[in-house]
Write a protein that binds this DNA or RNA. Structure first.
Lengths: 239, 239
DNA sequence: ATTCTGCATTTTGAATTCAAAATACACGAA
DNA sequence: TTCGTGTATTTTGAATTCAAAATGCAGAAT
């Protein structure tokens, strides 16, 4: 092989002077792979050729394989015995199940929030909400979505249950993937913004029941929208 | 180095004739490691020396490191940058958080069960319950515990939400660890058996509200018992 | 005595090498 | 022609090797 057996820089930016980098190679690879799967650059069901990916990333197979193990645990790829890896399919039933669970967890999050959010936290959430509304009015889709993720994450942080936070983070990865797969440009903006307003209201009132319900329902409706985007007809009977 | 550079068998049993084995080496290693962590053979907080483990397992570092990545995702070990791995501590707050989430998920499971369990499934659960009672009467701790795990898993299977099932499986690993750490020999047997009876009753009545509540509360009480075993005083205020 | 510096040793991170399994393909028999 | 069988090629699984980072320690300077 070649790639000039210099102790070459890992092909990152050159301009940053002191190079603060920490971060194992497999983490970088995992991050990039995750992106590729989420955005459909690696389409669902496609086989992953280790060799090709190694070449395109310019890394050896060791860190790539380690990264694949991480992605497998996240459910983004499947590891087949002696036959490599493939990108997992987006099964509508699994997506429905996912949102069912997420909705329940959001409900828990709401209940905890009502108990544990102090004035500072509420003010912070309110501010995030206002900024989202700005993006909404300007129809800045990317920014809106990014803030949306951040708001939801922040809410769970404030809820103060570390396990819940981790869980929601990892499930959010799958939600995001389902969203992409559904190509959700969503005319749900308006509805969603209204629901956020309700959530904020319940939070300010510290009404545990209302907060739990609104957050849960918000997630349910998001799920319904995503499933519609996946071409699932409304009837929610199993199998 | 030595260990006799023959193409030696991977040091598994010799007697089995046809060698049916499937299963990558890293999976075997992960399985064994998991056991060691769960049962405290590798105590919480202890550093893991790759070299020593490799020698004791008689495998090279590659599969061991892959296994460590898996365990890290399960939250059983922590990977430090350039400084190896250590077994995660059992933080009582994290355990409390864990049971808070598990209880909520059990509640969801119960609600779904009431909708989706058919006669056959209920009969099956009833039978498992009876067998548990037998073990209880005979004070067969191991068998009781094993069946307990199986019963709970089966219930979630019947609930029919794949994401929920996966989630509970992975969280159950942590629950088990907390249990061991608490050295829960439990005089909770009797109470637990009674709660199981209630659950079965609600299931047979297909009472969603009752089933959801009993399952949730059962998990909560288990959590309380474990936390007690960890030496946590009752007061449930944070931080 | 204490702290700092530089070197030796150990341990981890990643590339490479080697072996085993799976796949593709060509040839021959029915 | 079609179906098997055997062989070559490719791809994966795991061990080994090499390089970089961290750790431990001895000696010097204050």
């Amino acid at each position: 092989m070649d790639h000039t057996s210099l102790p070459t820089e890992p092909a990152t930016s050159r301009t940053t002077a002191p190079r603060l980098r920490r971060l194992s190679l497999y983490e970088v690879v995992a991050e990039r792979l995750r992106e590729m799967v989420l955005e459909g650059e690696l389409p669902p069901g496609s086989r992953i050729s280790e060799k090709r990916l190694c070449e395109s990333f310019e890394v050896s197979r060791t860190p790539l394989r380690e990264a694949l193990k991480v992605l497998a645990n996240e459910g983004l790829v499947e590891l087949l015995p002696n036959r490599g890896a493939k990108v997992t399919e987006v099964d509508p039933q699994a997506v429905a199940d996912l949102f069912e669970v997420m909705a329940e967890l959001e409900g828990l999050s709401g209940r905890l929030l009502a108990e544990r959010a102090d004035e500072t936290a509420i003010a912070e959430v309110r501010e995030l909400h206002e900024r989202m509304l700005d993006h909404y009015r300007r129809q800045e889709r990317q920014d809106y979505f990014a803030l949306n993720q951040r708001l939801h994450r922040r809410l769970t942080e404030i809820a103060g249950n570390g396990v819940l936070l981790e869980l929601e983070s990892s499930l959010t990865v799958k939600v995001t993937r389902a969203r992409y797969a559904a190509n959700l440009q969503l005319g749900r903006w308006e509805e969603s913004a209204r629901e956020h307003a309700e959530i904020l209201e319940a939070l300010e009132a510290r009404d545990a029941v209302a907060l739990s319900r609104t957050m849960r329902d918000h997630m349910r409706r998001t799920g319904e929208a995503v499933l519609q985007g996946l071409g699932v007809n409304g009837s929610p009977d199993k199998k």
